[in-house]
Design a binder for these strands. Structure first.
Lengths: 114, 114
DNA sequence: ATGAATATGTTCATCATGAATGTAGCATTG
DNA sequence: CAATGCTACATTCATGATGAACATATTCAT
C-alpha cells in the first residue's frame, strides 16, 4: 500500500490545506506558495518558512504532492491525484463545520439558499 | 487587557472549534461534549479525553468558555460572548477556505448559487 | 557595489494531539 | 448484592506541528 489512507491524514492542518489550495491552481515552487498563501489570507495566517518547508516535506512523504525536476534553483511541486482527493475530503469536512456554524447562527445567513 | 485578541487565537484547532460548536447549542459538561462531537462527526474526528480536557482548559484560560457552578459531579461550560465572536471569525476563515476549494473545483458545485 | 527581494533550509522551544492509563460514582441486570 | 458497563473527570508520555530565529546563497534594481 503506497499511501496512508485519507482518514489517517485528516484533519489536515490549516497550513497544509492552504498549500494544497495553492497547488490546485498550478505547479509552484516553495517561495511562490508562501506568497500566494500570504496574499490570499492578507496576513491572517502568517506563514513562516520553517512551517512551510517542514509542511512541504510532510506532504511529499505522504504522497499528497510530488516534486518536479528541471530547475536547479527552485523546487517545483505538483498536487498528486491522491493529494487532490485528500484535499477534497478535507474541504468537505470544513464545509460541514461551516454548515454547523451556520445552523447555530454563528455566521450571517448565506446569500444563496438558506 | 482581559483577553488575547482573536488574531492571536486563530486559527483554532479543529478540536477547539468543534467544542465551541457543541457549546453553541447550549451549556454542556465535558463528557456530553465528547459525545456530541463524536456523534456529529461519526468517528471522522475521534476525540480523546486527553485532547478534550486539555482543550477545555485552554479555552477557559483564553476566556472563550466559562465554567458554571452548581453541580458537584460534572463541570458545566458555557460559551462566552468573546468565545462566540472568536468562533464566528474562525467560521468565516473556514468559509473562505471552502470557497477557495470550490473555486479550484475541489468540491462539487453548490446547490444554491454558484 | 549595496541593498532588497528571491529562495531554500535548520534549530530550539513550545504547544496540541494521541494513546494509554487511573479513579470513582452510578445504573442495570441477573 | 455482585458483576458489568457507562458516566465523568483527569494525568502522563511520546510524537507531531508551529513560531521565532538564524543561516546561506542568488538575482535584480539603483
Amino acid at each position: 500500500m503506497p499511501f496512508k489512507s485519507p482518514d489517517a491524514l485528516l484533519p489536515l492542518t490549516p497550513v497544509a490545506f492552504e498549500i494544497l489550495l495553492a497547488l490546485a491552481e498550478g505547479d509552484q515552487h516553495g517561495y511562490a506558495i508562501l506568497q500566494m498563501v500570504e496574499s490570499r489570507l492578507a496576513g491572517l495566517l502568517p506563514l513562516r518558512t520553517g512551517t512551510l518547508y517542514r509542511s512541504l516535506a510532510r506532504l511529499l512523504e505522504d504522497g499528497l504532492i510530488e516534486e518536479l525536476d528541471g530547475d536547479d534553483r527552485r523546487r517545483f511541486y505538483r498536487l498528486t491525484t491522491h493529494g487532490r482527493e485528500v484535499a477534497a475530503l478535507e474541504a468537505e469536512r470544513l464545509a460541514g463545520q461551516v454548515a454547523a456554524a451556520r445552523a447555530r447562527r454563528l455566521l450571517p445567513a448565506r446569500k444563496g439558499r438558506p
